[in-house]
Design a protein around this nucleic acid. Structure first.
Lengths: 225, 225
DNA sequence: TCTTATCGAGACTTCCAGTCTCGTCAAACG
DNA sequence: CGTTTGACGAGACTGGAAGTCTCGATAAGA
């Protein structure tokens, strides 16, 4: 947020570097990609074991064996760095398997989603990131992409189920997807009820039943007769 | 977190006050309840207009015309004060009306819940509090009580619906309640889809349909045949 | 009147994000 | 090979916010 006017020395150095655009492209020591990886790895590790409260820039730099300034050479803020760490983790998520059986794949998707949250470190990391997303635009963007991916994966699975006739043709898949992830995040964030295998089974049954809601003649869903 | 050993002077004053338990009960100037109210009111007001990021203890004290120390005379921390402010606000929520018609009351409950979130200030305050609850035990407790109240109100409404035969006797009301509030909070926190009148109508229809999920012979819900 | 506790005000401490500087080191260029 | 350039780790520094401490003033009981 702070506007800073660079001093004369830095200014002249910068313009010299910019002017070199057509000449030599890059001189001097190169940025160390390994340091970047170490920073992200340390961040992910601490996020699971310490909780965001204790994951300070100083602690990350120390754990990664890196100077604080190096972190700010790669990312403009702590939030941006957290966002990239989360994005890297999200890539590790396996897409739902297409076994040919919608029933088996849906059950697998839901139970796997719940099982992943049984690890307290994972659960805490997700809660912390959702919390941070409420006041950091970078984290919000990353979390938005992360959750959109998940919704899209579940939606694709449900589209198959609809094609197979396991869900009615009129089923509102976006609604079902939000019902699923809403339930999951609500229990994760509020912690008033478990996200265990029993809840996964019950939720699956309720989602299938919810899929039978039918839209009225105006295309809108009719709540009540 | 810091453990502090009180100095001799403060210690002797404190023991003198404690010793007075049987003797004179209270001397000296009384704590000003109006200051307390002003603090809570200023907090609630700023929470809706500024966002938690800008709601600093200093800003609250200034807005309430109060010294910072006065805030810490009433609450041990900012989180505890936020929790009480939220609790006061929660009390203002009207319980669902019993019009005799389950259909009308459920529709009213759901549309009113969504309508309340159309005010950006309210939505931001709730998002901020959910965020703060993830790393502050006082806020977490208050939010837990707040959400439990809401779940309990909706559950009572649904119990009436079950008694009236509008929901099957086997309906798992806790699941339906979590599906509703999960959907609401998920869209509130992620912001990927609106919480408008159309969503309210669709959600109502899907909840009623989800209520038809039936448990298997073992009492557990069977996801799939 | 005298004692006691709260009041607003503000200096102060601690913690953390982010910036700046410094001496060092690696890569490119001449 | 030597010079230039820019990234490196380290650490001092700034700024903002939570929370503490102190002070003179004030209100209420004794």
């Amino acid at each position: 947020m702070t506007i800073r006017v660079p001093n004369g020395e830095a200014e002249s150095r910068k313009t010299a570097a910019q002017r070199a655009g057509s000449g030599r492209r890059h001189t001097g020591r190169r940025r160390n990609e390994e340091a970047r990886d170490a920073i992200l790895a340390a961040t992910l590790d601490m996020l699971r074991t310490e909780g965001l409260q204790n994951v300070t820039i100083d602690a990350i730099a120390h754990a990664a064996g890196v100077g604080r300034q190096t972190i700010y050479r790669w990312w403009p803020s702590k939030g941006a760095m957290l966002a990239e760490a989360m994005g890297r983790r999200a890539h590790a998520a396996v897409p739902p398997r297409d076994s040919g059986s919608f029933d088996a794949d849906l059950t697998e998707f839901i139970t796997a989603s719940f099982r992943g949250l049984e690890d307290p470190g994972t659960a805490r990391a997700l809660r912390d990131l959702a919390s941070a997303a409420q006041h950091d635009e970078h984290v919000a963007a990353a979390l938005g992409e992360f959750t959109a991916q998940r919704r899209s994966a579940l939606r694709a699975l449900m589209e198959r189920g609809r094609a197979e006739g396991r869900l009615p043709a009129s089923a509102n898949l976006d609604m079902l997807v939000d019902l699923f992830y809403g339930f999951l995040w609500y229990r994760l964030l509020m912690g008033h009820a478990p996200l265990d295998a029993s809840a996964a089974r019950d939720l699956t049954a309720h989602l299938i039943a919810a899929g039978t809601a039918v839209p009225g003649p105006d295309g809108q869903f009719q709540a009540l007769d």
